[in-house]
Simulated scan of single mutants.
Amino acid sequence: MSTHLAILPLDIIGTLTTRLNQENRHPDYATRFLRLPHPRTGLSSLFLLHDQHSQDDPTKTSSILEVQAISPTNARTWFVGEEVVADGKLMVMTPMDPMFLLMNLLRVPQARDGSKGNFRPMPDIIEEIAATISDVSEKDAQKDPSLKVSADDVISFLSLDFVQSSIKRVCDVKVITEEITVYRYSHDIVLENLKGKVGRLSDPRVAEMSRTLVRNLAKDGLMDDGKEELLESGRIKLACELLSQYLPRDILQDLIASYDFSKLDAHLKTVRDEELALLAAAPDTGKRTKAAKAGTAGNGNQKKKKDVRVADAVATDDGDKKRKKDAKSSHGVEKLKKVNVAGMSKLSTFFTKKAA
Rank of each mutant, 00 (worst) to 15 (best):
K263I: 07
D254V: 05
L201S: 01
K287A: 13
R272F: 07
T289A: 06
L264K: 04
A291Y: 13
A239G: 01
L238E: 09
M209Q: 14
A207W: 10
D250F: 09
R235T: 02
I236N: 04
T289C: 03
S262V: 15
G226V: 03
M209A: 11
D254P: 06
T212A: 01
E275T: 09
R249P: 03
R211C: 04
A218F: 06
A218W: 09
I251C: 00
G226A: 03
Q245E: 09
L276K: 09
F261A: 09
E232L: 07
C240D: 06
D225I: 15
L238W: 09
G295N: 11
G199N: 09
M223D: 11
R205H: 11
D224E: 15
L242K: 07
L230Y: 00
L243Q: 03
A281N: 14
L243D: 03
A282L: 14
A239R: 02
P204H: 01
P204I: 01
L231V: 11
T296I: 10
D265L: 06
G234A: 01
T285S: 13
L264R: 05
D203P: 02
L238S: 11
S210N: 02
R205N: 15
S258F: 09
A291V: 14
K237T: 07
V198Q: 02
L276C: 04
K293F: 09
L230K: 00
L201P: 01
G226Q: 01
